[in-house]
């Protein structure tokens, strides 16, 4: 994987509609993003379609990247995951969440955001390991499968409100661990 600074240079060039930079970004990042699409959609053909759409979005919306304060990989993964989830929910008529309501937020960047991001990235696996297996799986289910609270409650065979409490607690444990 290309070093982060290289990806940052490519992202900056992308905003200027530099096609060579786009090609370079594709070869450096497409395997990871294809992995994300596959993980969410679990269907090769659909993941290929999603990947195409993801890179069209990346090309068209590169100007939004810098305002998030994200690292390039964080932004790219977020675009890919959200798009794949959109597709998954469009496919799934039984969703009780209704229309996907996931758009990239583009607020002003926090100045210390990047430093924090780098520090947290190193710890995320460790902190995830601190959660009980089932609870970590519930968080994964929500992130990678777009599972609703109702779907998660059914899967883990707990009442809906218990599921909500569980997941919220797990998220707070994760956050606390990351900020230790």
């Amino acid at each position: 994987m290309t070093a982060r600074t290289d990806l940052e240079t490519l992202m900056a060039r992308l905003v200027l509609k530099d096609r060579e930079a786009f090609r370079a970004l594709f070869s450096a990042t497409s395997a990871k993003l294809f992995g994300v699409c596959l993980r969410v959609l679990k269907d090769r053909g659909e993941a290929e379609d999603a990947l195409q759409e993801v890179y069209v979005k990346i090309w068209n919306r590169a100007d939004r990247y810098s305002s998030t304060g994200h690292s390039p990989m964080t932004w790219l993964i977020t675009v890919a995951r959200n798009h794949a989830i959109d597709r998954l929910r469009a496919r799934r008529a039984d969703s009780d969440i209704g229309d996907p309501d996931l758009v990239l937020s583009d607020p002003a960047p926090g100045p210390e955001a990047r430093a924090i991001a780098a520090a947290e990235a190193r710890r995320i696996s460790e902190c995830f390991g601190e959660l009980e297996q089932a609870r970590a799986d519930a968080v994964r289910g929500a992130y990678f499968e777009g599972a609703s609270y109702a779907a998660l409650a059914e899967r883990f065979d707990v009442p809906l409100n218990t599921m909500k409490t569980w997941l919220r607690r797990s998220l707070m444990t994760l956050k606390d661990c990351l900020s230790r």
């Binding site: 994200h70 924090i116 990235a121 995320i124 992130y143 990351l178």
Partner: peptide
């Protein structure tokens, strides 16, 4: 944005 980062880190 912080949550987007935390979750993206899991994916990464």
């Amino acid at each position: 944005l912080a949550w987007e980062r935390r979750f993206a880190d899991i994916a990464e």
